[in-house]
Every structure is written in C-alpha cells, then in structure tokens.
Write a protein that binds this DNA or RNA. Structure first.
Lengths: 208, 208
DNA sequence: GACGTAAGCTTACGTCGTAATCAAACTGGG
DNA sequence: CCCAGTTTGATTACGACGTAAGCTTACGTC
C-alpha cells in the first residue's frame, strides 16, 4: 500500500494541497462508468481519466480496486431504501422492499453481477432492513423467522435480476418469450408471481 | 482469432500430430483449478501449466477465455441432474431439483459467482429441466406457469448459494465465535424454510 | 520566503488475454 | 524409406491491467 489510504478527510483545512478528488466524486463517477460501459470497463485508468486525474491518484482515497467496488456496492444499496408506511403489515412492507430492490437492480443492469458477488457491508445492510424488521416485530414475529423471510425474498430478487440481465439478446426460437417488450412483460409477470408465492407461503407459516 | 477454434474433432485419425489435449481434459482441469484456487486463479497460463502445456495451446480447443468459462458452466450444470421418480408429484420433483442444484453449488463454492454471472446454455438448460417439466405436465399445469415455477425456485437457490458462499470467514474481525457448524446449520434451515414457503405458495396457486 | 504537509503525477514491474508465427509429430502416397 | 500434407503444440510479442515507490505541486502557517 502506498498509504493507509482510507483516511476519510483531515479535520478540515490543515495545510496541504486542496483536494480535487473526494470519495464521493470517485464513487459517483465509478457508477457512471459502470452504467455506461459495464464492469470490465471500470478500471482505475478509465475512472481516473473520467475524473481528469491519473489512475494512481485514486489510491489516495481508495485502498485498492476491491475497496472501490465495495464502496460502489454500498452506494447502490443506499438507492434501494424504501419509505415504509407504519400502517403497512409485514407482508406489504416485504413486497414494497422487493419491488424497490428490484427497481434499483434494473436501473443498474451492469452492476447486478457486482452486487451478486460482493455482499453488502453488514452495517449498511442491517440499517437498510431495520425499518422492515420493525414491521415484523410489530406483528410479534420471531426475529430469526423475520430474518429468514427477508433474506429469502432478497436472494430471490437478486437471483431474478441476475437471470433478467444475464440474458441480453434472444433465447431459443419457439419456446418462451423473445427479446423485446414481451420479454420485459414476461420478467415482470414472473417476478410478481414468484414473489407472491413466496410471501404467501411465509404468511401461511407465520400468521396464526 | 487464430483459427475457427471450436472444431470438435477430425473424423478420427486423419494425419496430424496426436492430440495430448482435449476439450474434456481442459474443462476437467479448469474445474480443478477453480475449486482449488478460485476463479481469479483460473488463468490460461495456470491452466496450461497444470496440463503441462503452454497457455496458447489451449486456444486450439477453446475460442477464448469466455468460451472456456462457458464450457465450465455447462459441465457443472450437468452435475445437477436429478433422477426423478415418475411417481413424484410436481412439488416433490421441484424440491428434489432444488436440493440437487444446491448440492452442486455448495460442492463448488468458487464456481458460484461464475454460474451466477454466466447463464447456462439454453439447450443444456432445457435438457436439464425436461424431466422436471414433465412432472408439471402430468398434473395438467400450464407450460408457462410451470416455467415460472421452476425458474423461480432456480433463482432462489442460486441467490441463496451466492449469499452463503459470499460470506466466507467471519462477519466482524477479531471476534471469536464465527462461521462454524452453526453457520451451516443456519443456512440449511434458511434454505429449507424459504424453499418450503415458495413451493407451498405455488401449490396454493396451481392446485385446484 | 521557508517549511511542513497533503494531493496528485510519473515511472516501472509483473501478470493477464491473445494475435501472429513457427516447430514438431503424425498419416498416407510414391 | 522418404516426402508432402495436416494437425497440434510452442514461442514471441503487444497492449492493458492493478499497483508499489518516489517525486512534484499547491496549499496554510510562520
């Protein structure tokens, strides 16, 4: 390592050259490159050039490429937060979460393989799900049952998005839906059906 | 391209230097490297050296690294075939498929990110699921409903395996009671519970 | 203006995938 | 037995990657 890089920010304004780079700017640019050109194009050099900076300069703010990707993952998951109506039942909240999560994934198709591979930071994850788990608490559902329920829906949503973004052009002729608006409609229907099956299955098990 | 590489095999024995390399040997070695050292270690040079061969020699049998990975994916999916008892109902067959699929994934943890990212070849996939879909047909279930059902379970299994293998050692650093038999037991219980929820949800929807 | 310090730049190394070209090892015809 | 013809593996080389080490630049403070 060149430096213990992940030093967040000096306590403001002590001497030194003014920073043109910040972690926030880096992560934002990284997401832009990712969305525009895909994960393979997200290299240190390309990211640097987009920021008007040499590749090595990024290492002042990010330990290595892995840490950069982790920061991107965290940033993207923050997009999936939902406003939960306290009047919602746990199953309504769960569906709302699934839809919001999927919306984020489909908004960043090139990021889905990344999000699938790099687990979210534990703190970010639990913070994200805190409101959701509260809805289960409100119904007196055991914490571990609630966790299983939420995680199951989460992995279903992620897996579904992987399948959707992993099949770019067309499938086989004759069987199944072809690429086009039909495909989107099919994936939407599939998503809703599978989600409903899973949620209703949990309802039967957890509701007295 | 050096050659139209994926030429399978001359009609046997016409002139030419005898082949020490075959696609089968290459794929087998690739899976071994993958299992032993992970996806990043699966480079053309390392694979070549394991086969006692120069990296470039592999390109006589494989178009490029992408094609090699695709062949590995196909090979691994072939491990997930299940013997289906014709007396099984569709929901029993579906659960059996899920368990076998998960077994294959957990037997090759380093391959899970690869399988998640590279969709299986359409022909291989449909061949794999043919017996399963037959069980739905036998119950008079609509083909599209059956597909949605099977795919939903498949996506859940893959997402679940991703979550399990994506959290390798310990969650927090330094703290003691980490990932041991407890973790495995938790994942098993989570898997069973989520699978049961989804399958029973589909049962309610598809069974008269 | 000199100094300390933080941020960005330059250079360089080892590794990757792979294009182009060459050498080796077999078969069958003369 | 040797000589095409053919197929397979080896060599060499290029550009791109992540990143270690050291240098330069631009500030705030005396």
């Amino acid at each position: 390592m060149t430096q213990p890089a992940p030093r967040p920010r000096r306590e403001a304004g002590r001497g030194g050259r003014p920073a043109v780079l910040t972690l926030g700017r880096i992560v934002t640019a990284a997401v832009e490159v990712l969305d525009a050109e895909g994960l393979d194009a997200l290299t240190m050099r390309r990211l640097g050039s987009r920021l008007g900076v040499a590749a090595m300069s990024l290492y002042r703010h990010v330990a290595d490429r892995g840490a950069l990707l982790a920061a991107v993952v965290d940033h993207l998951f923050a997009e999936a937060v939902v406003e939960l109506d306290p009047a919602d039942t746990w199953d309504e909240a769960l569906s709302r979460f699934a839809v919001a999560y999927r919306g984020m994934l489909l908004a960043h198709p090139h990021a889905v393989p990344l999000l699938a591979t790099h687990p979210v930071d534990t703190d970010t994850g639990t913070a994200l799900l805190a409101g959701l788990l509260d809805r289960f608490d409100a119904s007196g559902i055991d914490r571990q049952d609630a966790l299983i329920c939420v995680q199951s829906v989460g992995v279903y949503v992620l897996g579904h998005a992987l399948a959707q973004v992993g099949t770019p052009p067309g499938t086989s002729p004759g069987s199944g839906p072809e690429a086009g608006p039909d495909a989107t409609a099919f994936y939407d229907h599939w998503f809703d059906t599978g989600l409903l099956a899973m949620v209703s299955g949990f309802e039967r098990r957890l509701t007295p």
